[in-house]
């Protein structure tokens, strides 16, 4: 390689490093700002200076000690429980549906698939109140089970990503097993499932995250039942007219605490996340 191309490469890399640095700063500013505000000493959501005038760790401590008005630890546990069950249930549902559509051939399969795809397109808020009344009619009034059901059914409508993944697994393996006398049930558990680890992790990850992010469904379902709130609903309450001055910094602290485990999950599983989104096509 000649020195001129080396030099031009160095220059172009230098430019790229500069752009990347500038971009990461821009991307991290809001996050850093959130962290800074979570340590802010003075109260209030709006401060007259760009940075706070004093810092304290109190916001974090009070989040866990002053629980009579905003019971952060309880909400955290609620959300965690809902998230774990949603994760298990949604993953099972998605696997069942996508395996069926990808592997099994039966009457009106295409019709079912298209219907699923269409249903997924309806804006969920519209049906929120009807869903609430149905849950109430079947005796799941203000229950965490209803949250799990709603989140899982939401997740399962995006079955087609997982289906695309199943499609990439050669069918020949199934056929060989059928010849050996395995039932479809056995094939599903012993052969197909182990090969679909990425999509399992993807589904589990996205469905685990949903309960942490949703603030509308949870509030419609839980309504006045403060002890069953999830974190997002509870944190939102801190921003109401009467509370924002007193609680904004604690809101920031609470948000930072939620973000830490999610960040760790994401960093660990980003590979699977991508394979999931692209339906396995990234395996090349």
């Amino acid at each position: 390689m000649s020195t001129t191309t080396l030099r031009s490469r160095r220059i172009s890399n230098g430019i790229i490093y500069t752009i990347l640095s500038v971009m990461s700063v821009i991307w991290l500013i809001p996050i850093v700002w959130l962290v800074i505000r979570s340590f802010q000493k003075e109260k209030g959501a709006w401060i007259t200076t760009v940075l706070p005038q004093g810092y304290t760790f109190d916001n974090y401590i009070r989040l866990f000690t002053e629980t009579d008005q905003f019971n952060y630890p309880l909400w955290f546990v609620n959300t965690l429980v809902v998230a774990i069950f949603t994760c298990i249930f949604a993953t099972m549902l998605v696997l069942m549906i996508s395996y069926t559509f990808s592997r099994l051939r039966f009457k009106s399969r295409k019709m079912f698939m298209n219907i699923g795809l269409i249903l997924n397109m309806f804006p969920g808020f519209m049906t929120m109140i009807a869903v609430y009344h149905i849950l109430k009619a079947i005796g799941l009034y203000q229950s965490h089970i209803s949250l799990v059901l709603v989140y899982s059914s939401g997740a399962s409508l995006s079955y087609f990503i997982a289906k695309g993944f199943f499609d990439t697994i050669p069918k020949a393996m199934d056929e060989a097993a059928t010849i050996d006398g395995a039932t479809r049930n056995q094939i599903f558990w012993r052969i197909t499932l182990p090969l679909t680890k990425p999509i399992v992790i993807y589904t589990a990850l996205t469905s685990f995250l949903a309960p942490w992010m949703d603030f509308i469904f949870a509030s419609v379902i839980m309504k006045d039942n403060y002890n069953k709130y999830t974190l997002a609903v509870g944190l939102f309450r801190m921003l109401e007219r009467e509370n924002i001055y007193e609680y904004f910094t604690r809101f920031c602290a609470g948000a930072v605490i939620v973000s830490i485990p999610i960040t760790i999950l994401f960093i660990f599983f980003q590979k699977y996340y991508v394979e999931g989104v692209t339906g396995g096509s990234t395996k090349g």
């Binding site: 549902l93 069942m96 549906i97 069926t100 699923g116 009807a130 059914s153």
Partner: peptide
């Protein structure tokens, strides 16, 4: 139900849920 009609087994729960939480509310709306 675990073999030739395995699809019925696998789809029964999702179908019921889809009806309860999507189809009925949708028709209502």
């Amino acid at each position: 139900l675990l073999d030739e009609r395995y699809h019925t087994t696998l789809l029964i729960a999702p179908t019921i849920m889809a009806f309860a939480f999507v189809v009925i509310p949708l028709l209502f709306m």
